[in-house]
């Protein structure tokens, strides 16, 4: 699913943010990307998502050479990847249903498909009853579940979740991780960036450990 080879990225400072990163992730894997704050987890995600450019190296995501993409065909990569943001990035003027349907509408799905897929995604994250609520009427955990529903609604092959439980308490975090495991069982490749030691202790999954921009464990 993902092949990264000799990746370098810097913001112009002395030390690169990402230095000589190489790893492979197979289809259907569930991987944790760990490391302290500032280790480069978010930057690595942004680079994988085509959100930021990189200086050197090769990245293949779902067969797409990320380095060859330009601003006009970047959407091809974005449609293969569902991104779950730490700050949820929900549209406050839209209802839960509309927020999830939004991801379907912008890829040009017809109304019938939009309704069916949005309904399924909400069912998957257990938010059907809250479909008409606005984000401001939801708890943090519920908002993150809407964000996950939006990430899976277009049926992407890969889900990147950047600190999805960073703003949530441990009970809600468990629910969110359980949700990711359920999605993984449906065949999706999942990478979760987290620095929660508790979660890492409990989950026996593959870890990619970043320290000051270098990959120590893959």
């Amino acid at each position: 699913m993902i092949k990264v080879f000799n990746l370098y990225k810097s913001y112009g400072g002395i030390a690169p943010v990402l230095s000589d990163i190489s790893f492979d992730i197979q289809d259907g894997e569930f991987v944790f990307l760990t490391g302290q704050s500032g280790a480069g987890k978010t930057t690595l995600f942004k680079v994988l998502f085509g959100w930021e450019k990189f200086d050197r190296g090769q990245i293949l995501v779902g067969g797409i050479n990320v380095g060859k993409l330009n601003e006009k065909n970047l959407y091809q990569l974005r449609r293969k990847v569902g991104f779950v943001f730490q700050d949820y990035k929900l549209l406050m003027k839209k209802t839960v249903f509309e927020n999830v349907a939004f991801a379907q509408q912008i890829v040009g799905a017809n109304m019938k498909t939009v309704r069916a897929k949005t309904w399924n995604a909400l069912k998957n994250v257990g938010l059907v009853k809250k479909k008409d609520s606005y984000p401001s009427q939801l708890s943090g955990g519920e908002q993150q579940r809407v964000s996950i529903a939006r990430a899976i609604v277009n049926d992407p092959e890969l889900i990147l979740a950047d600190e999805p439980t960073g703003n949530l308490d441990s009970e809600i975090s468990k629910e969110i991780f359980a949700l990711f495991e359920k999605i993984n069982q449906q065949g999706k490749t999942i990478i979760i960036a987290t620095h929660s030691a508790e979660i890492l202790r409990k989950k026996e999954r593959r870890h990619l450990l970043l320290k000051r921009g270098k990959l120590l464990q893959s």
């Binding site: 998502f49 959100w51 601003e71 006009k72 970047l74 959407y75 091809q76 974005r78 449609r79 991104f83 990035k89 549209l91 939004f102 991801a103 912008i106 890829v107 040009g108 939006r150 277009n154």
Partner: peptide
Amino acid sequence: KDEIDLMTLLGATHQY
């Protein structure tokens, strides 16, 4: 801006 930013992140084409 938030909505348009989100559109690009979710895979909207420039045309859209």
